[in-house]
Amino acid sequence: MTTRDPQTLEQNVSPNPDNFSANLDKRYTIDIIFAIAVWTAVVIAIIVLASLLIDVAIDGLPTLDWGFLSNFPSRKPEQAGMKSAIFGSIWMMVTVAVVAFPLGVGAGIFLEEFAADTWFAKLIEININNLAGVPSIIYGLLGLMVFVRLLEPITGGRSLLSGALTESLLILPIIIVATREALRAVPDSLRQAGFALGATRWQVVREQVFPIAIPGILTGMILALSRAIGETAPLITIGALTFISFLPENLQSPFTVMPIQIYNWVSRPQTEFHDIAASGIIVLMVMLLVMNACAIFLRNKFQRRF
């Protein structure tokens, strides 16, 4: 109810049709202008990305061969390869996934489904959202202090395990946030139905909520891993080596990963190394694309048939 004087408000009078002016020409012109603007934005984005990719391909493709994938790094650019970096990255991703998945998904489930709505839970929530935005170098410093120094007897110092734990910390907030989003998207009516049948909270989560949320959780997980695979700064901080001519044997082995290897090649003066750095970038990008493809595949596989 508005506070207008009732006398000015006559009943049963509809608005005068003459007071509407269609002005279609002007409205359609604005339509077209806006369409052109957003189209330009798309074109610029694509051109930048494409020129980047083409440039990398021109530099890197000639030196990209089987030898490049199967050789260890070398002083001589024509013999240098990425084998140890590729294996390091794969070890790294598997370890990060094994550590971060249960922790992140578990924390997400707890916060969304189990935690009472207290100020403490809210405090944790705000902190997690903030952690997702903390620069990765800070995680590197934390990893250096905790995993490399304090926990050296367990991690073996500047090892794969230290690196993996550091990167796990880095992506935990992303996984937690993605898990919570996925759980929040599950309609509450299903939880109510479960509870009304005498299910406990865990039974409701396990049988009804989690299966529906899992495609979303997996997508978040893979996106988080895609971020981890490209991270360089925290690993350099904890002291990953740049020249490794052997494969990691266990989690306590020293290691290198692809972005560090690429960074190392780019920073050398010889142009030959710059070319193989471009080849390295191509390999890294293919690996990223493969991971994203896995994400889409897993999501479609787990998507409910119902």
């Binding site: 309609p187 009516s189 299903l190 109510q192 139905a193 479960g194 509870f195 009304a196 049948l197 005498g198 299910a199 406990t200 009804q208 529906i212 409910r304 119902f306």
Partner: peptide, 19 residues
Amino acid sequence: VQLRRRIGMVFQKPNPFPK
């Protein structure tokens, strides 16, 4: 939890599980 086994409920909007 035990009580809800003995006192069932049907909701306003049909909410079968997506199974």
